[in-house]
Amino acid sequence: MRHASLGLMLFAFWLALSGHYTPFLIAVGVVCALACVAVARRMDTGDAEGHPTHLLGGAITYFPWLVLEIVKSAWTVSKIIMNPRLPISPTMTVVDASQKTSVGIATYANSITLTPGTITTHVRGKRLTVHALIRGGALDLEGGAMDARVTKFEGGA
């Protein structure tokens, strides 16, 4: 099931990049998609971690929320950069991830890094080390709002 969806996605990707729809090129695309699926199967990368189809439902609401967060924090960081006094207060902190799977933890860590003003510098188990541009950003993460949102996303909501 997962492999079928992987193959369909790869084929759609081929069609999107190709732009030429002759029978020969479409046939080559099918062969390439099948070959990639076969390789993914042998390498065991087409599993829940490599091709997380079950997260699709959660993604529909999660990514707009994440984009909003990115816009807000990018605006904050931009104001700091353009401020002549450069009012930064770099802070490093640790936060605990409450997600159960490695995909969830990776999503959380990447979401932290993706929002300007915070980067995950280290992940060990469920403990993330975070560098924040301003102290408030670190405190916000310690508050755990984003962590709870990612856990909800992981649960498929």
Binding site: I70, V71, P90
Partner: peptide, 15 residues
């Protein structure tokens, strides 16, 4: 410093 520069670069990369 390097780490604060990464924050600045991510503004370009995202927004």
């Amino acid at each position: 410093d390097l780490y604060t520069r990464i924050h600045a670069a991510s503004v370009t990369d995202t927004l």
